[in-house]
């Protein structure tokens, strides 16, 4: 049979910590040990109940809290800014990525397929320049045609 609880065991029980089953059983049946625990608990409970004397009027306290809550519109604004910020960050990152692509030494690697190649552009320009009927390329003075013969055959 177990003797009275040690001071440590009384302390543990008073602190609300678990006792081993044998000590627990002893405590249930021993008035001396139970009184030691109860003495401490009584003082603590007394102090706690005195603190409760200062409790506010809970209904009034609830009203004060509810009056202090931010309006719904403020809350919505807060929610909006919560997802708006990451969205703006992503957009900014995309703009920067595109910009950096153009700043690379070689420029964009491949022209889009819908744009004409350099050879096609040069051929089109040749065709345009050889067409005299286009305004601005018509022959101003027909005699100028003879100049070519003149220079080839020498002045007469």
């Amino acid at each position: 049979m177990k003797t009275h609880l040690t001071s440590d065991e009384i302390t543990a029980n008073a602190a609300g910590l678990e006792l081993d089953p044998v000590s627990k059983k002893h405590l249930e049946n021993c008035v001396v040990c139970r009184t030691k625990v109860a003495d401490f608990e009584a003082v603590v409970e007394e102090r706690r109940s005195r603190m409760c004397n200062d409790e506010p009027d809970w209904e009034a306290q609830t009203r004060l809290i509810m009056d202090r809550l931010p309006a719904e519109s403020e809350t919505l604004g807060r929610h909006r800014s919560r997802w708006l910020r990451p969205l703006l960050a992503v957009a900014a990152a995309a703009v920067m990525a595109v910009g950096l692509g153009f700043l690379q030494p070689g420029g964009p690697a491949e022209p889009p397929a819908s744009q004409p190649s350099v050879e096609e552009i040069l051929a089109e320009m040749d065709e345009l320049l050889s067409d005299d009927s286009i305004p601005g390329f018509e022959i101003i003075d027909p005699e100028l045609d003879d100049l070519e013969t003149f220079f080839e055959n020498g002045a007469s």
């Binding site: 001071s7 440590d8 008073a14 401490f40």
Partner: peptide
């Protein structure tokens, strides 16, 4: 907690 209660007791 144990230390506190021990000291207070």
């Amino acid at each position: 907690l144990h230390r506190a209660v021990h000291r207070l007791r």
